[in-house]
Amino acid sequence: MKILAEAWHWLTTGSSWLGASGPWVHGPDGSLRLARDSIIGLGVGHLYMAAAAVGLAAALALPLGLFLGHVRRGGTLTVVVANVSRAIPTLALLTLFASGSVGFGNRAVIVAVAVFAVPPILTNAFTGMTGVDADVRDAAKGLGMSRWQIIVGVELPLALPLIATGLRTSAVQAVATIPLAALVAGGGLGVIINYGLSTQHYGQALAGAVLVAALSVGIDALLGRLQRKFTPPALRIGRSTLA
């Protein structure tokens, strides 16, 4: 109970949210940085890193998945990528990148999280494209559509629900993985948990954990809702579970 009270107190204190001197502070070189003692500052950094990681992964995996799906080759590749990535601990990649030349802290985190964001995007884009009915492609060809027109005008719209599912899975996963950044001196909301655990401020650790859990579940719900809203009624396939 004492811990719960501590957590509640910490969460309801203004300075936990705003930091000692605001969510933005000036670094040693005068540049503006996100404060590490503010929930808002850490939260903004958290979302920025997640967005950057998913953006990076999408820039790579989306064209590749769409292309492979269009030519209907490389199914084994996507499965292998998905399976192998599961066996690699995120922490291993994080410490590896942070020790190596990728750079200390947040940059290493973004690259590591992007690596894990690739498989869902790749697999779903591929599955979405290969799932387009061959008759539909034939009909498009019969109408005299060029290859490019078929991709953009026929296959892409039909594959959109699965592509969106892939992006959403990656985004949720990224938001849930960023907390580990705290372990390699990066930012994000994990900093609160890590600080609480390592200094035995368990109330704060609990509060940070609740924040991180709420953010992950919230982002999942939000993206799920967005996805439903922007899917044309004819293409709605229910809550897809392809991950």
Binding site: I193, A209, V212
Partner: peptide, 22 residues
């Protein structure tokens, strides 16, 4: 279980540790 699965591991350890210890 799918909602629960969304909770990050670090957060879960953060929730558990105050009660189950290090």
């Amino acid at each position: 279980s799918s909602v629960f699965y969304t909770i990050p591991s670090l957060a879960l350890f953060g929730i558990l540790a105050p009660y189950t210890g290090i």
